[in-house]
Nucleic acid binder design. Structure first.
Lengths: 186, 186
DNA sequence: AATTACAAACCGACTATATGGTATCTAATA
DNA sequence: TATTAGATACCATATAGTCGGTTTGTAATT
C-alpha cells in the first residue's frame, strides 16, 4: 500500500494493520489466501510479530470476526439513530448497513464474513446467535414477515454482491431498494 | 453409511459416491475438511482411485460445482413445468428450489455452493454468469423488482439456512414464503 | 539524573506435518 | 490383449506453529 515506513511499537495500530491485511487477503485470494505468511507479508510484519499478537490462525479468525462484527454493529447503531422509525428500525438499518453504497467498504468487508463461516463453522454459530439476540432485542419492532423479507433481501444482496452477480448491478440494486422501502408506505 | 460392500468397476456410481462424499465433507467440516484424503476416505475409495476420476483438487471442485448446478437446474425446470405461471416463473421456481423443504436435501447441498465460491473465486464467476444467462432467457417474465426481491430473499434464506440463523426456523420461513407469494396476488 | 529491572513488541530461522500430486503396479472388463 | 478402474507406496512442498534471541519502552530505585 503506502511506502511510508511503519511506526513500530504501536500494538493497537499493528493489530489493525494485521486485521486489515487479513481482510484484503481473503478478498483478493479467497480463503486459501489467508495464510499466516501472506497476512504477515501484507501487514509488513514478521511472522513472529504476527503470532505475538494472534497466537494461532484460529485466534486470528476469531479476532477478525469480532473486528468486522463490531464495525457492523457500529454502523447499524448509527443508522438506527439517524432514522429512528418505529417499524422495522433494526431491519432497515441492517439492510442499509449491508447494502447501502454509502457505508464504507460495504462491498468488500462484508463478504469476508461468509468466507470466515466457510473455514470456521463455529463463527457461523456465533453470527446466528448474535442475530438471534438482536431479534430478541428488537422484537417489538422487527418481528414480522415484512421485516424478515428485508433482512433476507439484504443477505441476498450481500451474497450477490460478493459473487458479483447480476443483482448486484447498481441499477438493479436501487430498483430493489426502492421497491422494498415502498412496501412500508402501503 | 451402508456397510454393504461396494460394487467396484462402476465408474458412474463411483463418481457419484465421490461427489456426494465431497459434499458431506464440506457440510461436516467446512472447506478445510475437503481434503483429497478425507474425500477418499468417505467415498471408501483409495486416493489413487479418486485421482483417477478427478485428476486434481481443482478439477474436483469444478465437477462438484457442475454436479450441484445441474441438480439445481433440473429442480428448477421441474418446478417451472409444475407451476407455469407467466409472471416471475423463473424466480418463483428458483425460490422454491432453494428454499422449499420439499426439494431433496435442500438444506444441505445448497450451502456447499458458498463454500466452493470461497475456495475457488472463479466458480463464483461461473455462477454469476449462469444466473446472468437465466436472466436473459427469462427476461420477459422475470426482469422486474418484485422478481428480484424474490430471488434475493431466496439467497438470503439460503445463506441463513447454511448458518442456521433465526430466519431459517420453519415457522419464520413459512411466514416469509406466504408473504412473498401474496405479493403476487395484489 | 542515572541506573537497573522488567515486560512487551518483534524478528527470523527452524521443525513437523498435512496434503496435493506422481509413479507404478494389479485386476477386471470389453 | 488393450484399456480402464482402482490400489499402494512414495515424493515435494506449503504452511502452521515453536523457540531462542533482540530491541524498545517504562517505571521503580538509587
Amino acid at each position: 500500500m503506502s511506502d511510508t515506513p511503519i511506526k513500530r511499537r504501536q500494538p493497537k495500530i499493528m493489530r489493525k494493520r494485521i486485521l486489515d491485511a487479513a481482510t484484503e487477503a481473503i478478498i483478493d485470494e479467497g480463503v486459501d489466501g489467508l495464510t499466516l505468511d501472506e497476512v504477515a507479508r501484507r501487514a509488513e510484519v514478521s511472522k513472529g510479530g504476527l503470532l505475538h499478537h494472534y497466537s494461532s490462525k484460529q485466534v486470528l479468525h476469531e479476532a477478525l470476526f469480532d473486528y468486522l462484527l463490531s464495525d457492523l454493529e457500529e454502523t447499524i447503531a448509527e443508522l438506527i439513530d439517524a432514522n429512528p422509525h418505529t417499524l422495522a428500525r433494526f431491519s432497515l438499518a441492517y439492510f442499509d448497513a449491508v447494502c447501502n453504497p454509502n457505508t464504507p467498504d460495504y462491498d468488500k468487508k462484508r463478504g469476508v464474513f461468509f468466507a470466515l463461516f466457510a473455514v470456521q463453522p463455529e463463527l457461523a454459530e456465533r453470527w446466528a446467535s448474535w442475530l438471534q439476540d438482536r431479534m430478541v432485542e428488537h422484537a417489538a419492532t422487527d418481528d414480522h414477515a415484512m421485516a424478515r423479507v428485508l433482512r433476507l433481501a439484504a443477505d441476498g444482496l450481500w451474497a450477490s454482491n460478493m459473487i458479483d452477480g447480476p443483482d448486484s448491478e447498481p441499477a438493479n440494486r436501487e430498483d430493489v431498494t426502492l421497491f422494498l422501502k415502498n412496501l412500508f408506505r402501503s
